[in-house]
Design a protein around this nucleic acid. Structure first.
Length: 502
RNA sequence: GCCCCCAUGGUCUAGCGGCCGAGGACGCCACCCUUUCAAGGUGGAGAUCGCGGGUUCGAAUCCCGCUGGGGGUACCA
């Protein structure tokens, strides 16, 4: 058994019952990488067979999530394809056809048991400490009995006639042989009374119809693998390769990540300011590694180096700290600053810090420069606007005490600031080296440590105590605005000093 | 309860019989750099490779049992 095959056709098949979360996306990603690397076909199929849980908005949420992170599909919703339709709800006739075949060949049977009876059965089994399961009540109904139920207007479900003994075994690419005792299996429902198939029937039929070569999915599906195997065999079809991906656990390891863990939703990550490149890279690293030291991979790198066989079979916890680090790393070291700035721009407009940023404009240049200066402090895209705000607009009022460093008198801060303003008025801010030289000399002249002189200037110009290097900050803010802001600070300090003198 | 899967530092992992007195990353600590905050650099703490049996000249690596964790047990996927 090998995973590098010709004509690879794989699919990601989510059900539209909510937002896509990182676990699902990771499975999609591995499937996608495998397809691209083998020049195969990646299909998106929507498994909308549950009328009750169906949520239309999640279809866009799913496609948006996949597109955001860069997983494009060759066949599926929006793009079509030769094996469509790609919504299971539009393939009902097909499932009916195959179910009839199963019925005719005695691989399945109609069951008229009511949901109430089944619930009661389970309850009794639970009380008696017996394993829950269908009691095969309808497995051997006579034609007369069936007709009787039908006459009562009861719509049957169709169940799989699982062999009573023996074992069903199959191979999992990551785990090797897995076998199950038939005696422990249930006569699972294949077709519901509303005419919709269950997952078990639909996957098998569609995977066959769509020519899927490798069935990739989460490991929560391992327990139903024997049912699917029995179906593949019953239809007389060659079994595909099965690959069950490890689940992703909650950060505390207690249970698998679910849609309840809000932040784990793809779209939530996007809205929180994560870069799709970082999320993609991080997700690829949970459950897979290329070697003992490489961990930064672009999508292209992954397509080249990914290997399905190297996916670890053991579950892994979702680690927000590592993702955050990855995001920060991408912001600070991987994404070109122009690109980064262009992603911050929409947020600036949204928050009203700028009206518009036409390509090639001075504003664009300013934003790009500002982003370049603060990117080492930016962990999330969403922090961008605040971090560069003072390059674009006047800083809001701040506490005067910020202008006075520790072990420094307000009067000293004031004296330093006035002198610094005069220096800048004289030489401007464009020559960073010169400004630094003059201000360092100035510190000595006025008898202040560099920190005692620089901090008041920093606060005056940015309105805060943390900023990029002073001289580059002054340069980008520009001479005129720097001086105005320093004057404003000088006025604040003056009133402080006079109050103190009273 | 029953079935199935998994098992290397707190977390993600490298390791596929000798190169391992276990390597990398995140996190944590210290130091360096330094005009602030970061970023960066250097170093450090942290794993009897879950436990117990085997197999072998030799096991983190193979086998069995146990324990622990996870998954499944619906006319949900």
């Amino acid at each position: 058994m090998t995973s590098s095959t010709d004509n690879v056709r794989v699919r990601f098949a989510p059900s539209p019952t909510g937002d896509l979360h990182v676990g699902g996306v990771r499975t999609a990603l591995f499937t996608y990488l495998f397809a691209r690397q083998n020049e195969g076909t990646f299909i998106l199929r929507i498994e909308d067979t549950d009328q009750a849980r169906y949520d239309e908005s999640s279809i866009t949420s799913i496609t948006e999530s996949l597109r955001w992170i860069g997983l494009d599909w060759d066949e599926g919703p929006d793009v079509g394809g030769p094996a469509g339709p790609y919504f299971q709800s539009q393939r009902l006739d097909l499932y009916r056809k195959y179910v009839d075949k199963l019925l005719a060949e005695d691989y399945a049977y109609e069951c008229y048991c009511s949901p109430e009876r089944l619930a009661q059965l389970r309850e009794e089994q639970r009380k008696a400490g017996r394993p829950p399961g269908y009691d095969r009540h309808c497995r051997n109904l006579t034609d007369e009995q069936r007709q009787e139920y039908r006459d009562q207007g009861i719509k049957p479900v169709v169940r799989l006639k699982v062999p009573l003994d023996g074992t069903t075994s199959g191979m999992d690419l990551l785990r090797g042989p897995i076998s199950f005792e038939n005696g422990k299996l249930e006569d699972a429902v294949l077709l519901k009374s509303d005419g919709y198939p269950t997952y078990h029937l639909a996957v098998v039929v569609d995977d066959k119809e769509m020519g899927i070569t490798h069935v990739t999915r989460g490991e929560e599906w391992i327990p139903s693998m024997p049912l699917h195997l029995i179906l593949w065999d019953a239809f007389g079809w060659d079994r595909p390769v099965f690959v069950h991906m490890p689940v992703i656990l909650k950060p505390d390891g207690k249970g698998k990540l679910s849609k309840r863990d809000g932040a784990a939703s793809m779209l939530a990550l996007r809205d929180e300011g994560y870069l799709h490149e970082a999320v993609l890279n991080y997700l690829a690293m949970v459950g897979w590694a290329y070697d003992d030291h490489t961990e930064i991979f672009s999508k292209e790198d992954l397509i080249e180096k990914f290997s399905l066989e190297r996916v670890s079979p053991s579950p892994a916890r979702f680690n927000y700290e590592k993702l955050e680090w990855m995001n920060q790393h991408y912001i600070n070291h991987i994404i070109p600053v122009e690109d980064l700035a262009s992603r911050v721009v929409p947020l600036l407009v949204e928050q009203g810090l700028v009206d518009e940023v036409p390509p090639g404009s001075d504003t664009e240049k300013l934003v790009t420069e500002a982003v370049g200066l603060i990117k080492d402090k930016m962990k999330f895209l969403t922090e961008g606007p605040d971090l560069i705000s003072y390059f674009l607009t006047e800083p809001p009022d701040y506490d005067t005490s910020l202008l006075v460093p520790r072990k420094t008198e307000p009067a000293e801060a004031l004296r330093g600031l006035e002198a610094a303003r005069d220096v800048i008025s004289e030489i401007g801010v464009d020559d960073e080296e010169e400004v630094e030289k003059r201000l360092r000399a100035l510190a000595e002249e006025v008898g202040l440590k560099v920190g005692q002189l620089f901090m008041p200037i920093r606060v005056a110009v940015t309105g805060r105590t943390a900023s990029p290097g002073l001289f580059e900050t002054l340069r980008v803010v520009n001479k005129e605005r720097s001086i105005a802001r320093m004057n404003r600070a000088i006025e604040k300090l003056k009133s402080e000093v006079s109050v103190a003198a009273d």
